[in-house]
């Protein structure tokens, strides 16, 4: 069983990224569950989306011990990294938006938001850049599956930019 947590603030698209990840894993024949928790507001606040991947049916729907936590805001990083395993867990943070790196041995910093705005053209693509990062780091799904899953979920006129974002994220780590 592998457990991934994507966190950030409402509107950053972490839920969409989690759905795309789960769908890609499903396309490779894995069992998946995807869940999220957020506050009453549609924008802002700390939100998280979780993906569990296994080869057996998954019953308990939430993460017990994450393998990877991705955080796109300081607030989310502070809130959601704590149950990571000190030895095997991996914390991935946005280099610019998480200035105070939590005291954790295994942290990877990636300027995902900066890559999205400077290299793809819009901050809107942050979540897909982050997805690319996770695809590479998690080694759970192939880039091709992720690519196919992105194409299925995003609006047709944004496919090209989203694939670019995915690739940039994938190559950034």
């Amino acid at each position: 069983m592998k457990q991934l947590r994507l966190s950030g603030s409402g509107g950053q698209g972490v839920i969409t990224a989690a759905i795309i990840f789960a769908e890609a894993a499903m396309s490779e024949g894995r069992q998946v569950v995807q869940s999220q928790s957020y506050g009453p507001e549609a924008r802002g606040g700390a939100s998280k989306a979780e993906v569990i991947i296994d080869d057996k049916p998954i019953y308990h729907p939430k993460i017990i011990k994450p393998d990877i936590v991705l955080s796109l805001t300081q607030k989310a990083a502070d809130k959601y990294y704590k149950d990571l395993d000190e030895k095997t867990g991996l914390l991935v943070v946005d280099e610019d938006l998480v200035p105070d790196i939590p005291d954790f041995p295994n942290v990877i910093k990636v300027p995902v938001t900066r890559i999205a705005s400077e290299q793809v053209g819009k901050m809107l693509f942050t979540n897909i850049v982050a997805l690319g990062v996770l695809v590479k780091l998690s080694k759970l799904i192939s880039f091709a599956s992720a690519e196919a899953s992105v194409k299925k979920r995003v609006p047709p006129h944004t496919i090209e930019q989203n694939i670019k974002a995915l690739k940039l994220g994938y190559d950034a780590v």
Binding site: I19, A22, M26, Q31, V32, V33, Q34, S35, Q36, P61
Partner: peptide
């Protein structure tokens, strides 16, 4: 809400 918002294959 658990099942309502849960996604599964």
């Amino acid at each position: 809400e658990i099942v309502g918002h849960l996604r599964e294959n």
